[in-house]
């Protein structure tokens, strides 16, 4: 898909995400807006998926490890036709879309996620299975930068390198904030690229809102897992949310929601 098309899709995803979180009265707008471009690009230009056959074995697997940004994932899946868009308004309501993803509750959700650090290990298991059985699909795992604090992330990083899981691509949403402050203040991660390289990964850094740079997501290196460090701006697209850790996990009120939608409608 061309960049203009992707831009329009990502804009719609952002509007849906803001509306969902506003209607729910709680949720995580910062990360959801920050990953909207990446998720749009992945679902329109990278992942082999089939909305009418969501469990088709040849599909690429997309594991969302930082489950709290699920409003953006739900919006992209609805946009792609995995389920009807009217379900988006049920976010965080009884019998509706879960506040953190639940496998089996919606087509296209590969794993439940919420507690951080769970996704990379699961992705390793999936990638290893594909290798064992000679299957050609690829496994993509999105993580937050905050969840690099979790020790299990590094256990999985070692495992992926040991097993030469070159059918695994992890993507870190490097927005430099976490719940209670900047990542470099809460628990410094830098130099993140060198850390993963030391763990024997193939690491590529991209601008996380630049569709041209996202072409690099398909880069592979034989015998090594690949990490894409996608530098993003949390709250991207809504001026008063951009770069603010305070918007990590807070719903907008009515006037903030209206202001956000107004801004997004102009883009």
């Amino acid at each position: 898909m061309k960049n203009d098309y992707l831009k329009e899709k990502a804009r719609k995803v952002r509007i849906e995400a803001i509306d969902m979180i506003y209607t729910a009265g709680s949720g995580h707008p910062g990360g959801s807006l920050g990953v909207a471009d990446l998720l749009t690009y992945l679902y329109y230009n990278v992942l082999k998926t089939n909305a009418s056959k969501p469990s088709w074995n040849g599909r690429d697997r997309f594991i969302l490890s930082n489950g709290h940004v699920c409003p953006a994932l739900y919006a992209v899946l609805a946009e792609k036709g995995f389920f009807k868009k009217d379900r988006l308004k049920t976010l965080r309501k009884m019998n509706g879309l879960q506040g953190h993803p639940e496998r089996g509750s919606l087509p296209g959700i590969e794993t439940s996620a919420g507690p951080l650090g769970l996704g990379l290990g699961i992705s390793c298991g999936m990638a290893l299975k594909a290798k064992m059985d000679g299957e050609k699909h690829h496994i993509y795992c999105m993580m937050s930068d905050g969840e690099q604090d979790e020790g299990v992330t590094w256990e999985a990083a070692m495992f992926a390198a040991k097993n030469k899981l070159d059918n695994l691509t992890a993507i870190i949403d490097r927005n430099k904030i976490q719940l209670s402050g900047p990542t470099e203040k809460i628990m410094p991660l830098e130099n993140l690229k060198e850390k993963y390289e030391a763990f024997n990964w193939n690491v590529i850094e991209i601008k996380g809102h630049d569709f041209n740079e996202m072409k690099k997501i398909k880069t592979r290196k034989k015998g090594k897992p690949t990490l894409i460090i996608a530098n993003t701006i949390p709250g991207k697209g809504v001026s008063f949310m951009e770069g603010k850790f305070e918007w990590h996990g807070k719903a907008p009120n009515k006037s903030e929601r209206d202001q956000a939608i107004k801004e997004l409608n102009k883009q």
């Binding site: 990379l120 699961i122 290893l128 594909a130 064992m132 256990e155 070692m158 495992f159």
Partner: peptide, 22 residues
Amino acid sequence: IEVGVAEQNLAAVGAGLALEGK
């Protein structure tokens, strides 16, 4: 499959394998 002294990842890798039918 040897995962090393990493019980958390042991469970996580197990989950991934099981979700894929193992």
